[in-house]
Design a protein around this nucleic acid. Structure first.
Lengths: 207, 207
DNA sequence: AAACAACTGAACTGATCAGTTTATATATCC
DNA sequence: GGATATATAAACTGATCAGTTCAGTTGTTT
């Protein structure tokens, strides 16, 4: 009990293995990424990998879980409830769009969607750490804004689902399917502004 | 030239092969579905399959192409430009939502997204026969409505991208990820009404 | 230095699977 | 009926890959 660095450390090379696996799985997917690729990438022996993880499946799940959690951290900076509503929504939309369109956000989405049948828990983890968090954060913000009389929303849950969808506006699907590999700032601004305009038009207080 | 049933028929069992492949690929995906599964399902010999298709990849592409075309037909019944705008949008939204949430629409989406890296042309085909058609159809309808003074839209392309996104409103991602396997009519109606309300609020002509 | 744990490399097993081959059978056409 | 195209069954090849094994090495602790 003399308090070693990290008590539950399961082995010196745990992180190497996870990093290698993340890199390979994110590049090649579950089927496409072989265990031999991973050990090569991780600079670790196969026996070591299998001393940490009983099989490839569980290694993949661990990577996916970590990746989803990272995603969550990136997407979920609190909305500033102070100041102008339009400004707050614009800021939130910006964060969302930029995350949706980022390489890592994109690739996680592709893999999670593609593997969600084989690994139902991945779908759950992804949803809970991504869309559900955004939704909850938005709902909280909107509730407050309604209480303050700055918005008028009858169905807050619906509104909290609509706003992120508006922030995709055609760009997301094009990126996911590989029709484009980048978006310009102008396109992003156009989508954001369109989303905020529409949202405020529907739920903003009149006069 | 005595007009046989189908002139270009490449072999008697072409359709059987394609049907079997569709069934297996739609159930198990590209990697998950083996060629032996397919020939068993199709009731055809392996040699026959390989006399039609040089490899598994091209067979998959053919299936995907056919499936995308079928999707297109299902989703693209023309919007009735006559009558009430609200009614026309509601009807169009209904068709979209119900297609998005259908088993086949769902499964095609999962597979296309998951395989779009390995098969870039699938992403193209899917986009062209699905989202692009909807978008075009909507843009045409909206243009007409603007000309008739029934809507006021500055950026028609943006509006044509926004409306389908509004029709997903959280349900789609939950279904895709396997968090739910069905939606009630009430939920669908709520999403549709919410989409139409918001869209008309933004683009409807005022008083 | 002795003891113990973690790690390595490389060979191996067993299974799966895409694609081929061949000898045989069944339609179809004239 | 005879010729030609198409289909079949089943065995086979070659490659890939997950997971195991083990004899030996490295690092850590006391």
């Amino acid at each position: 009990m003399n308090a070693p660095a990290q008590a539950i450390k399961q082995g010196r090379k745990w992180d190497q293995v996870l990093d290698g696996a993340r890199k390979v799985f994110m590049r090649d997917g579950f089927e496409g990424g072989s265990v031999d690729d991973i050990v090569r990438e991780a600079g670790v022996s196969k026996a070591t990998l299998y001393s940490y993880f009983p099989d490839k499946r569980l290694l993949f799940l661990e990577v996916a879980k970590v990746e989803c959690r990272a995603q969550s951290d990136a997407a979920i900076a609190q909305i500033e409830a102070t100041g102008d509503i339009r400004q707050a929504l614009t800021q939130a939309a910006g964060r969302m769009v930029r995350f949706f369109m980022s390489d890592v956000g994109m690739q996680v989405y592709r893999i999670v969607v593609g593997e969600s049948r084989r690994f139902p828990e991945i779908g759950q983890d992804f949803y809970n750490s991504g869309p559900a968090m955004v939704r909850q954060m938005l709902a909280q913000f909107l509730t407050k804004a309604v209480e303050d009389g700055r918005l008028e929303i009858d169905d807050i849950d619906l509104a909290a689902d609509q706003f992120p969808e508006l922030c995709k506006a055609g760009l997301h699907i094009q990126m996911v399917l590989g029709l484009r590999t980048s978006v310009t700032d102008e396109e992003i601004d156009r989508v954001i502004e369109g989303a905020v305009d529409m949202f405020l038009c529907r739920y903003g207080v009149k006069g």
